[in-house]
Structure formats: structure tokens, C-alpha cells
């Protein structure tokens, strides 16, 4: 299939960016979107042009490194997958594909389609952990945990930290990301010990970094490659409320 790619090029964080158009031919329907980008970059390099910078690593939908806002949607026109799992059969011959970086103040552009998501690490560092040191912990079966809670915690823990929630949200809010981590620990007895401090610190850090406010549009849930539920946001709101009134 042949495509017309409209790709955002920006040389650095403060540079002015613009769309550049690249026609590309003979792409197999069975190739993945990033393999299509590889082909483009191979062609650019052969012509002596600078390849398009974009983040990617595991290429199996788990590391959370790949991003891209494709035709108006984070991770492109398919549900519950990352860009690296997107396949070209989701596009039709002759289509114009617009590719932008994720845009949010806390995710500054590094180059082209690559953004800096260290804001997420900062939020985790603020409280996204259980304060236990190595060694000196009880036997794993010493604390029985209801299966339903363990499963819900796993649902929340499935977050890959890709930032699609922020990218999709019209407010660039990070609530789904933050609430997923808060929920995981809130649901488990190990995490309950520090539940109050955790939710307060993580929300404060999120606000401090400059993410937007949640207005319950649920675009985050619709675009999350791991289908993390907005029920986690509600749980975090409860946790926050409980922390503030206690």
C-alpha cells in the first residue's frame, strides 16, 4: 500500500516545529506501524536526510516507550494497543496519516516525535512505592489477600506508563496514571499502611508538575492500551477525601 505521511518535525525543545510530508510506497499490510517508520527512516538515511526521531523499545506493547498521536488518537486507530502493536492493515491505500508527538506542558518535546516523560517518574518517586527495604519481610503467604482485590490491584498495576492518558485528555490530566498506582497499593494490605501519605504526596506532585485537572471525560480510559478503568480515578478521589478528612 502507498501512504502520505504528515509528520511533525522539530529539531529541539525550543525550536519551532512544522509538518513535513513524506510519501511512502509498497508498505505491507502485515507490517507494524513502527516497521513502516523504520522503512521511512531507512529511506531518509539513504538519501542523506536526518531520520525521524521517535521513542520505541520492546515492540511488544509492554515497555511503554512508544507513543505517537496518529490521526488524532494516541497509539493510533485501534483500541487497547500501543503504537508498536498497531498494524498497517488498519489504514487504507492512499490514506494521509498525520503523526504528531504527544502534547502536554509536562511532556516537553525533545526532538520530532520524542517527548520527555520523566514527570511520571517524579510522581512515582513522590510516593508510588511501599516503604520496605530488602530483607526482613514476612512470608509471602502470611498476609492472605482476597482474590478479587488482588485481581483489581493487578488491573491497575498493568499500567505501562506510556502517557496515552495524558495525551488523550483534553486537559492533559495525569489522573489515570496516578490513580492506577494509588489504587494498586490502596487495594492491598501492604500498601494500606502508607495510603494516606501516598495519595497526598502523589496528587501534590502531579499538580505541582502542571498536569491538568480531571473533568471526567474518560478519554483516558478509551485510549489506555491496557484498558485501565476510570474506576481507579474514583478510588483515588475516595482515598484523597479520606486522607483529608482523617
Amino acid at each position: 500500500m502507498d501512504l502520505k505521511l504528515k509528520i511533525w518535525r522539530q529539531s529541539g525543545p525550543d525550536a519551532k516545529g512544522e509538518f513535513k510530508e513524506y510519501p511512502i510506497q509498497d508498505i505491507s499490510k502485515d507490517s507494524s506501524f513502527l516497521e513502516m517508520m523504520d522503512v521511512l527512516n531507512e529511506q531518509l538515511v539513504s538519501k542523506g536526510e536526518e531520520p525521524v526521531a521517535f521513542d520505541h523499545d520492546c515492540r511488544e506493547g509492554i515497555c511503554g516507550m512508544c507513543s505517537l498521536f496518529i490521526n488524532g488518537r494516541p497509539h493510533g486507530p485501534d483500541d487497547a494497543i500501543t503504537t508498536c502493536q498497531l498494524h498497517m492493515r488498519k489504514f487504507h491505500d492512499g490514506e494521509t496519516v498525520t503523526i504528531e508527538p504527544w502534547r502536554a506542558k509536562p511532556f516537553p518535546i525533545i526532538k520530532d516525535l520524542m517527548v520527555d516523560r520523566s514527570a511520571f517518574d517524579e510522581i512515582i518517586q513522590a510516593g508510588g512505592f511501599v516503604s520496605v527495604s530488602t530483607g526482613g519481610v514476612p512470608d509471602a503467604n502470611a498476609i492472605p489477600i482476597k482474590k478479587v482485590n488482588a485481581d483489581l490491584a493487578m488491573d491497575a498495576a498493568a499500567c505501562i506508563g506510556c502517557g496515552a492518558c495524558v495525551a488523550a485528555c483534553k486537559n492533559a490530566s495525569a489522573m489515570l496514571f496516578v490513580s492506577a498506582k494509588v489504587s494498586q497499593f490502596a487495594l492491598l494490605p501492604q500498601g494500606r499502611v502508607e495510603a494516606k501519605e501516598r495519595v497526598e504526596k502523589m496528587v501534590a506532585k502531579m499538580d505541582d508538575i502542571g498536569f491538568g485537572n480531571c473533568t471526567n471525560t474518560y478519554a483516558c480510559e478509551a485510549e489506555c492500551p491496557k484498558e485501565i478503568s476510570v474506576a481507579n480515578i474514583a478510588r483515588m478521589n475516595r482515598e484523597f477525601f479520606a486522607a483529608k478528612v482523617s
Partner: peptide, 16 residues
């Protein structure tokens, strides 16, 4: 033991 203490959500039986 260490991972459970950290809050790793391993699969569980109905008995917990």
C-alpha cells in the same frame, strides 16, 4: 516474600 511485601499483585487463590 520481598516482592509480595512491595505490593506486587501476584495471582491468588480464592482463599487469599
Amino acid at each position: 516474600d520481598q516482592c509480595v511485601a512491595q505490593g506486587v499483585p501476584f495471582a491468588r487463590e480464592y482463599g487469599g
